[in-house]
Structure formats: structure tokens, C-alpha cells
Design a protein around this nucleic acid. Structure first.
Length: 155
DNA sequence: GCCAACGTTGGC
DNA sequence: GCCAACGTTGGC
């Protein structure tokens, strides 16, 4: 089983929205590296739900992967903001279904993660806090996952 | 709203 | 294949 982190702007789609729906497609990813990670995902993989571009940036909860990736329907939907003309002739973009697992009582803030990384070497290679990294989908090692989950328990 | 950093596009 | 210009991401 693998671990991941996926970003969403809570104004668009938040952990609460997922909680209400329980399951939802994760779509609209338009970056090749992120797309390739989506294609690697397997059922039951665990995923951090990260809130970006908002007042409280950080990890807001956990979801899990359902099934495997499929062609993103929004890419071929003409009136969608995620429509991509080139998708009509080739399978360019992928989506995957995610299931709600838990919403943290308190968000693990980006600031707290950065602070923790100063002392805990398990977070040394955490892509989230690498300078200039803008990936919206990224792999998380099991050591990193454990480290961050411990942080949840200690709050 | 600002801006650093990155990805993509397209001319050459 | 290079690289300038542009668009986007995302923290602050």
C-alpha cells in the first residue's frame, strides 16, 4: 500500500465536502507529473487531504483510494473549465475516486509541518516543503506518513 | 494583491 | 533543441 498527498482549495472542494459525499472523483488535475502519480495509485492507498490557497493551509484529513484511475471526464466535456481539446484524440488526463476516511479536529498547518521537519529527519525529503514545489499530487513515504500521523495524535 | 518559482507554448 | 514569453500555483 502506498501513501499520497493531494491538494485542493477548500473554497472549491474541502474535506467537509468529501465528508458529506463520502466518495467523490478527484478530477481536474492538469499537470503531467501529478497525473502520472494518479495513474500509479491502487485501491486502499491512503491519502492526505491538503487545503491550499486559503486561510489555514495544511493537512485537513485522510481519504483513501477507490478503484484505479480512469480518463478524466471533465477533459472531454466541452463546457467544462477543465476541457482540453487534445483529449478528444488521446487519453491525456486521469481522474480517480476517493473515499472519506477522517477529518482532523485540528488541521496540521504547513507551518507546523515545516517546524517539525527541522527536528524530525523523516521529513527531510517531504516534497510538500521543498522550495518551489507546486505539485498538487505527490507521494509520501511510510515514514513521513507515520511522522505526520503522530503529529495528529499529539495535538 | 504581490511575487517567486515553476510548467508550457511556440518561434526560430 | 534553445529560450523568451506567458500562464499558473500557492504561500504570505
Amino acid at each position: 500500500m502506498a501513501y499520497w498527498l493531494m491538494k485542493s482549495e477548500p473554497d472549491e472542494f474541502s474535506i467537509k465536502d468529501l465528508q458529506a459525499k463520502q466518495q467523490a472523483p478527484w478530477d481536474g488535475v492538469r499537470n503531467y507529473q501529478a497525473r502520472n502519480f494518479i495513474r500509479e495509485m491502487q485501491p486502499e492507498d491512503q491519502v492526505f487531504f491538503y487545503h491550499s490557497s486559503c486561510k489555514q493551509v495544511g493537512i485537513a484529513g485522510v481519504m483513501s483510494i477507490v478503484g484505479t484511475s480512469y480518463e478524466d471526464p471533465l477533459a472531454v466535456k466541452k463546457n467544462s473549465p477543465y476541457f482540453d481539446e487534445k483529449s478528444l484524440i488521446e487519453n491525456r488526463w486521469s481522474a480517480i475516486d476517493v473515499k472519506f476516511e477522517k477529518a482532523f479536529e485540528k488541521i496540521i498547518s504547513l507551518q507546523a509541518i515545516k517546524k517539525l521537519a527541522q527536528h524530525d529527519h523523516r521529513l527531510d525529503d517531504l516534497l510538500l516543503i521543498k522550495k518551489g514545489n507546486r505539485l498538487s499530487v505527490m507521494p509520501i513515504s511510510s515514514a513521513q506518513w507515520q511522522c505526520l500521523m503522530q503529529q495528529v495524535d499529539s495535538i
